[in-house]
């Protein structure tokens, strides 16, 4: 692929139609991870696919304009620091204490979205971290690798 213009008009139109659905699906998989199959890993990867699709369909130059590109490492760090913070908070406060505290704030019951204590927050942290990491894998291996060849 010598040009960085992306694919044809059909692919671009379909991409712009499908994008919001993928975004909503990823968020749903992440948030309902403690009730249904899915969770942080799967949701984060679907969110990463959103950006990978943008890159492949629109080409490198357009995508660079649309996204402020080198921000993933910040999201990556935010995700892992959030996970570390949540887990160490549970460790120092005692698991059941933290569970009861957050359950009181949520006032949740079983089988409801706001239940299961810190699990939803952990899922969100993992989703941010894994999504940023997977997109970085794609970017490092295909975009940066290509730049060297084209020079």
């Amino acid at each position: 692929m010598k040009n960085n213009k992306g694919m044809t008009e059909i692919v671009k139109t379909i991409t712009s139609l499908v994008e919001p659905a993928i975004l909503l699906y990823g968020i749903h998989i992440t948030l309902y991870g403690h009730l249904t199959p899915g969770g942080g890993f799967a949701g984060g990867m679907i969110l990463a696919f959103l950006f990978i699709l943008l890159f492949i369909a629109y080409g490198k130059d357009e995508a660079f304009k649309k996204l402020k590109f080198p921000q993933e490492h910040i999201f990556d760090s935010i995700g892992i620091i959030g996970l570390l913070f949540l887990l160490s908070m549970i460790f120092f406060a005692g698991g059941h204490y933290a569970l009861e505290l957050i359950n009181k704030v949520y006032s949740g019951r079983a089988y409801h979205l706001f239940s299961a204590g810190p699990m939803m927050l952990e899922n969100i942290a993992i989703a941010v971290k894994v999504g940023a990491s997977v997109f970085m894998v794609f970017a490092v291996l295909s975009v940066f690798g290509k730049e060297k060849k084209n020079d």
Binding site: V130, S133, V134, V140, L141
Partner: peptide
């Protein structure tokens, strides 16, 4: 599985 993905990414980088 997720660790396997990262290992493969490292191997592909070395191959490149």
């Amino acid at each position: 599985i997720v660790i396997g993905l990262s290992v493969v990414a490292l191997m592909v980088a070395i191959a490149i």
